[in-house]
Amino acid sequence: MIKKDDSYFIEKVKKGNSDIFKYLVERHKSMVFTIVLRIIKNKEDAEEIAQDVFIKAFQSIDTFEGKSKFSTWLYKIAYNLSISKVRKKKHEIIDINEDLISDYKIFKTYNEFIKREEYEKNKILNKAINKLDNKGGLIITLYYIEEKSIQEIEEITNLSKSNIKIILFRARKQLFSILNDKKDLIYTY
């Protein structure tokens, strides 16, 4: 089955076929949710905000001219909405140190850890990224996981290239030290 481009669905939605929008939601929900979660750092709130992102995107889809990728435009909405929510309501950054420690306790035995699925490794890595500050975690995600270029990150976040590089440098250093501390957990695969 040929995978249809975002523009195909966007044109249909613009013509009034709103039901088609669900295909765009399905395609981008994971990334939008991740972006929001990296900033909000609370899963329940992130889900609600991520939904608001898609509602807002649907309402303003006529303003999307196709000059940039739809994903970039969408992630920009996600970023802006999340940042504004954080400013309005100061979210407590959940200290996940305890979670990491509890995982460590679970994985104390080498054999126990080996039996764990890839899912657990992802969990640890995602938690490590969540330990970084809002922008650091987001930029690490966009750069390494989404493989976005600095240019694209600039379009999404509206931060300057130099700013992004500085944040990336700091976040990379922090993440390195976090992961290095927990390397035994991760490298037993």
Binding site: V25, T34, Q51, I55, L125, Y144, L175
Partner: peptide, 27 residues
């Protein structure tokens, strides 16, 4: 090191009725 560690890491997923909730609101 970071590239290697994060290679293939799966993103967090929202709940199963995420899309359904959005489409209900739109309708």
């Amino acid at each position: 090191y970071i590239k290697e560690m994060l290679k293939g890491v799966k993103k967090d997923l929202p709940s199963e009725d995420f899309t359904k909730n959005i489409m209900s609101q739109i309708v």
